[in-house]
């Protein structure tokens, strides 16, 4: 676990970040890299007190940019395995073991968390958007996934060097899949639980709102034309 680095992108997560970091520490993970994406609340202090290494984006650059900052830092600091983990408490630290397993067994270089491989309750509109995203990924990249936009992922060092994120905002989820395919990185989907708390359902800014999905689609088309 020493060589496993957990990358946590965060924006205004003072309510959850303390618990998230403590729970990760309880599971035995100590290389916790919190990338603060320009929070205006107390996220940085709470994370530092909880014992995470905090990298600060002085201007908000988006989740994709924050993840890549964490990846670059982890690689510079000797990470062998890199895990993407949400700051809002939607992921279960106990499941890091299962997401790392295929990498340790050398069955895959990247694992992608999937909430659809497990039966689970989910708000209907969320389900619809996610299923739509899966369809779009399939049309765009010819890759059939069960969950295209899950923030729970793990990479080996080698894969992390191949799959660099260059899209700053939320399109990174699609970009990662695109690069996995183009660079022929072996991947596997792993069932994970997403904890839908009441606050996650209330605020649209969490994860990807319905309107954001349309913006992302537009950007994906532009990127596709650009390459």
């Amino acid at each position: 676990m020493k060589n496993t680095h957990i990358i946590i992108p965060a924006l205004n997560e003072e309510k959850n970040i303390g618990n998230v970091i403590n729970n990760l520490k309880k599971e035995g993970y100590h290389n916790l890299i919190l990338v603060d994406d320009g929070s205006e609340d107390n996220t940085i202090n709470i994370a530092e007190q909880a014992g995470a290494k905090v990298l600060k984006h002085i201007i908000n650059r988006g989740q994709g940019a924050a993840l890549q900052t964490g990846m670059t830092y982890a690689l510079l600091n000797g990470a062998q395995y890199l895990v993407h983990f949400d700051a809002d408490g939607q992921h279960d630290p106990k499941e890091i073991k299962s997401i790392l397993k295929p990498l340790l067994k050398k069955e895959a270089e990247v694992t992608l968390g999937s909430r659809f491989l497990k039966k689970q309750k989910m708000p209907f509109i969320r389900k619809l958007t996610l299923k739509g995203a899966i369809l779009i990924i399939w049309v765009f990249y010819g890759e059939k996934l069960s969950d295209a936009h899950n923030g729970f992922r793990a990479f080996t060092k080698e894969a992390a060097k191949k799959v660099t994120i260059t899209t700053d905002k939320m399109e990174h989820a699609s970009e990662i899949i695109d690069k996995i395919k183009k660079r022929k990185v072996k991947y596997k989907e792993v069932p994970v639980t997403i904890i839908y708390k009441e606050e996650h359902l209330k605020e649209g800014r969490k994860g990807q709102g319905q309107f954001d999905s349309i913006k992302i689609l537009f950007k994906m088309i532009m990127e596709k034309l650009g390459t």
Binding site: L55, H57, I58, I59, Y73, L76, D168
Partner: peptide, 16 residues
């Protein structure tokens, strides 16, 4: 320009 800004922000974040 956006991509360059991100590069700068990233370098600053990692160096500090």
């Amino acid at each position: 320009i956006e991509k360059n800004i991100t590069k700068i922000i990233r370098t600053v974040a990692i160096k500090k």
